[in-house]
Write a protein that binds this DNA or RNA. Structure first.
Lengths: 143, 143
DNA sequence: GTTCCTGCAAAAGCTTTGCAGAAGA
DNA sequence: TCTTCTGCAAAGCTTTTGCAGGAAC
């Protein structure tokens, strides 16, 4: 099950990570907006509530959360990182037309080949790119 | 089978892509050094042969080759891209200690879930991170 | 002579770092 | 008070762009 905001708050306390107003807001945003936001999206949105917020703080917070294992950094060939509060194994599909990122279930462990039996695997990622159903049907209408 | 340098040369001719000295050298480097080099690695190495080479040309060439589908861009959470002349589906494992990237076979198509049946998939990527056998045994010796 | 290619310099964009001041315990 | 956190400014890196000169046909 997806962790709730309260779960995360508890986990931070357990890990002895300070819970400033800014950090709580970043965490809250990630918990409520599961669209794999960029730093800029998080910053822009939170700035409406916290006018003095700086991007540095957003970067700091996300680094701390990632190091604590509470968020996962995903990078799909963009220069900019995206952040996912769902740290369970799952795949990402990025639409090359509208840019939306879709989650999909994937049994990553079944992929691990014999060749990697002597490797220690810490992180597993699967991502596809292409066109989502919405953009596909738009394209058909145009043609 | 892996494409040879000659295969690639032929394919470029077919696709009407000019074959300058610089482009041939980049292609040759990729065919002979299958270590997923960065732009900087390619540039630094080729500069020994072509002192006037510029990084812009390396970037241009790689973009053209990627657009033609002759090389694949791989980005594993680094800011810098890496380039792979092997465009067949396969997974990448990046050692977090020594930075080496290993290839491994993977049947990506078997992963595609029902949920994506209405999506058009153009590009499939699987990458793991962790520790390679060499770094694992070094670690044990130290402890 | 046209077209394409190269390469310098500058710009752009994301991220990190240094540091002084503010907040909190 | 002492530690931690914030946020501005500047720097760092990779990558892209503009443009003039050069090569190739």
């Amino acid at each position: 099950m997806d962790p709730t905001f309260e779960d995360l708050r508890q986990e931070l306390k357990t890990k002895n990570i300070g819970l400033s107003h800014q950090r709580l807001k970043v965490l809250e945003y990630l918990a409520q907006n599961r669209c794999h936001p960029t730093v800029d999206q998080i910053y822009t949105e939170l700035q409406k509530d916290i006018p003095t917020l700086s991007k540095t703080t957003v970067y700091n917070t996300l680094r701390i959360l990632a190091e604590a294992g509470l968020v996962k950094v995903i990078s799909i060939e963009d220069k900019e990182c995206r952040f996912d509060i769902d740290t369970e194994d799952h795949g990402h599909f990025k639409c090359e037309s509208c840019g939306t990122i879709f989650d999909f279930p994937v049994d990553i462990d079944s992929l691990i080949p014999e060749e990697l039996s002597n490797f220690k695997i810490n992180d597993k990622n699967v991502y596809f790119k292409g066109l989502c159903p919405g953009c596909l049907s738009n394209k058909k209408e145009i043609n």
